[in-house]
């Protein structure tokens, strides 16, 4: 069943639309034939003006604003999603997303078409995320005053599981997630990224290797170490927990 349009709100209003009108049949009156004909005419005369990726890239290299906007429209959601997976609810995601696209559009001449543009974009995302994680770690190390990024505060336990969890369960969930986030923060950026790409985005070793610019063997090593460190940290926290 289709979802209702205009429902669902996030941050400041109802941003991303994923919905559809259950009430539509009731609203549809008898439309004039000409309007319908006009509305549908383009589907016969102009089948979807789909543009191939190569063509879009070529136009974007010539700095055609429409091509740049179309490329942005195609890839922005994936970039944002990937940044969120790698960094959590980091307030600098927007800035990083901006940097990713600025870099992409400036470096389009270097894109040779060997991999898909999506892979190329996500490779930039991985590098940006890695740099940002390094910076985050450094800031934390240098100054204790830097407020620690705590995604756990955003946790709404009711979203995490079905049913209605009790307040104790909610607190428990939130604590568990905070511990996991703490453990992830202790991983080096490269290990963290490899691990999250594997576990959260379900990428194969080869795909991860392509996106982080390393060999499959290196990625496998990073994953093994990340897993070991994560398990060790979680075990320690469980032991320490009263």
């Amino acid at each position: 069943m289709v979802q209702p349009m205009g429902g669902g709100g996030n941050r400041l209003g109802d941003g991303a639309v994923r919905a559809t009108p259950a009430f539509l049949p009731a609203l549809v009156p008898l439309w004039p034939q000409w309007l319908l004909a006009e509305a549908l005419s383009f589907t016969r005369e102009r089948p979807a003006p789909e543009t191939s990726e190569e063509e879009l890239v070529a136009r974007a290299r010539r700095n055609e604003p429409e091509a740049l906007q179309t490329l942005y429209q195609i890839h922005s959601a994936a970039v944002y999603r990937r940044l969120t997976h790698l960094l959590g609810a980091d307030p600098e995601r927007e800035d990083l997303m901006q940097e990713v696209f600025v870099d992409l559009f400036r470096q389009l001449d270097r894109y040779r078409g060997g991999a898909s543009l999506r892979t190329y974009v996500l490779r930039i995302v991985s590098h940006k995320a890695c740099d940002h994680l390094r910076q985050r770690r450094r800031q934390r190390r240098v100054s204790a005053e830097v407020p620690r990024f705590q995604p756990a505060t955003e946790v709404d336990a009711s979203e995490l599981s079905s049913g209605a969890p009790s307040p104790e369960e909610r607190v428990g969930h939130a604590q568990e997630l905070a511990i996991v986030e703490e453990a992830l923060e202790k991983l080096t950026p490269k290990k963290r990224i490899a691990f999250l790409l594997r576990v959260v985005d379900n990428l194969s070793l080869k795909e991860i290797a392509e996106q982080v610019g390393a060999t499959v063997f290196t990625v496998a090593q990073r994953l093994r170490h990340a897993d070991r460190e994560l398990q060790g940290h979680l075990a320690r926290r469980k032991r320490d927990r009263p």
Partner: peptide, 29 residues
């Protein structure tokens, strides 16, 4: 737990953020 931790943040790009960031990209370019 790791999946939950990563997915607990809203990873859906809303219209406003999308357009706002694109405006900044255009300005930077």
């Amino acid at each position: 737990l790791v999946r939950r931790s990563a997915l607990v943040a809203n990873d859906v790009l809303d219209d406003l953020t999308r357009a706002r960031v694109f405006g900044r990209v255009q300005a930077a370019l």
